[in-house]
Design a protein around this nucleic acid. Structure first.
Length: 436
RNA sequence: CGGGGUGUAGCUCAGCCUGGUAGAGCGCCAGCUUUGGGAGCUGGAUGCCGGAGGUUCGAAUCCUCUCGCCCCGACCA
């Protein structure tokens, strides 16, 4: 993509409406634009990142055996009356009346609808288990939306619902999701700590929140220092080992009765990016989701549900990965892998070298963002740093005289001057290492 | 939903107290000079001063009502 034609409306200054860093940077980097409180439009570069995050979530859900579908955003009130939640959900649910005065709602979540689909279409225990998920926009009319996409009213969420003949099977999928979530967040360059959560009205004791560590997180969490050891050196922690460790949000943490000795107890701020629940028969009973068992008996199915805040993750990634100059995208979610910067547009040698590299990078499958605008070098550097692409490939007359290009790593700030061929190879191989 | 703040150019803000023809910087457009960390000079375009009502000869400015947005709390993914 040539920056001269790309729709990337960046801002030099922080908009006053944005108070936290991810919100500021998303606005400044031209990723989103606010429509109303807690409701955003995603501009091209923001959408690219959102799609990348979404795709990682999708791949991991698929790998775990879930099947994607897409449910309607608008739902009939009738279905929610069956579960009793039409009245119970309160003002957070956006209610709509259509032209025939039928009561509708914009889905804040989809347990009722998926259970309705399931009960109508699955009749035998032989079809179990089933895991169905979607990545769909939700609307929850929060009293106080805030922090940009971190707590929006409209948000993109992956919601997976599983159906089982018995608890043991439900537990198995729960455990699979636990591991899948760790893997999903790790692939985005995030460290997420699973925190045993209060299952609330649902009952049972199987519920975990996944908290991404970031200074600006909304909740304070306490955890066993062993978490850090298990995930040291960027290695994938063993889910089974993690399950044994203590972690709690501050409202549940009791310093007096904490099983972890004080010298091993760590605390940090967390952003909740995922939540998994064992639901039991809460919805299957209410909506009469039953299948025939091996002996012809009626079995009310067991259920689980597993959510990931996809749009929130974009904000969480920025909260966890930025510096004073802007965003630092982890490679797997970066909107472009490399920014190719022509430091002297109009100079025949620079133009040619850049055009060649641009074509070659595209051929190699690396999508570069090519800054071909007639701007000063300083302005280009600042903008590249702001939008946070993992690599910058700088071509200027100074280096070009010696046949050299400069490769800058956005994260470490390290810059090396190497031959153009070597620079090309470096970019391509780093890309291939990430994208197989 | 309680408390606090804030709405003036695309962005950041001044002007309001003390009423008298709408301002700056950045950005945008044109030209010249520049050219490796957000350049300089010259010229130019851009505003229902959030909205409605009121006071007044006259309102961005004073009064009343209202709406939006942001922050804290409660609530929530």
């Amino acid at each position: 993509m040539r920056l001269s034609t790309y729709f990337l409306p960046t801002l030099k200054e922080n908009p006053t409406e944005a108070q936290i860093v991810s919100h500021r940077l998303m606005l400044r980097a031209g990723m989103i634009r606010q429509s109303a409180a807690g409701i955003y439009s995603w501009l091209p570069m923001g959408l690219k990142v959102l799609r990348n995050v979404e795709q990682i979530v999708r791949e991991e859900q698929d790998r775990a055996g879930a099947q994607e579908l897409l449910m309607a955003t608008l739902q009939p009130a009738e279905l929610w009356r069956e579960s009793g939640r039409f009245d119970a959900y309160g003002k957070e649910m956006l209610r709509i009346t259509d032209r025939h005065d039928r009561e509708m709602l914009y889905g804040p979540t989809n347990e009722e609808m998926i259970t309705d689909i399931f009960r109508n279409l699955v009749k035998s225990y032989k079809d179990l288990p089933k895991q169905l998920y979607q990545i769909q926009w939700k609307f929850r009319d929060e009293v106080r939306p805030r922090f940009g996409v971190m707590r929006g009213r409209e948000f993109l969420m992956k919601d997976n619902y599983s159906f089982h003949a018995d608890f043991e099977d439900a537990k198995k999928v729960y455990d699979t999701m636990y591991a899948t979530y760790l893997r999903t967040f790790a692939r985005m360059g995030l460290r997420a700590i699973p925190v045993a959560a209060d299952p609330g009205a649902i009952g049972g004791n199987l519920s975990h929140e996944f908290q991404v560590l970031a200074e600006t997180g909304e909740s304070e969490i306490y955890y066993d220092a062993k978490f850090d050891e298990l995930s040291a050196n960027g290695q994938q922690p063993d889910p089974v080992a993690l399950r044994e460790l203590y972690a709690a949000a501050d409202e549940k943490h009791d310093a007096a009765n904490c099983p972890v000795p004080a010298d091993r107890l760590k605390s940090a701020r967390g952003i909740e990016v995922g939540h998994i629940f064992y639901l039991g028969k809460k919805y299957s009973e209410a909506l009469n989701a039953v299948v025939a068992g091996p002996n012809g008996e009626q079995i009310t199915v067991e259920m689980g549900c597993y959510g990931i805040g996809v749009s929130r993750l974009v904000g969480a990634i920025i909260e966890a990965s930025h510096d004073d100059n802007g965003i630092i995208w982890p490679e797997p979610v970066a909107p472009f892998h490399v920014g190719l910067v022509n430091l002297r547009v109009g100079d025949a040698a620079c133009d040619k070298a850049c055009d060649d590299l641009y074509a070659k990078l595209q051929t190699a499958g690396v999508e570069p963002l090519y800054d071909d605008r007639d701007e000063r070098a300083g302005a280009k550097f600042a903008r590249m740093d702001l939008i946070g692409l993992p690599w910058q490939l700088l071509i200027g007359p100074r280096g070009l005289e010696k046949g050299l290009a400069e490769v800058k790593n956005r994260k470490t700030g390290e810059r090396v001057e190497i031959s153009i061929e070597a620079a090309f190879d470096k970019i391509v191989s780093s890309y291939q290492a990430r994208h197989r």
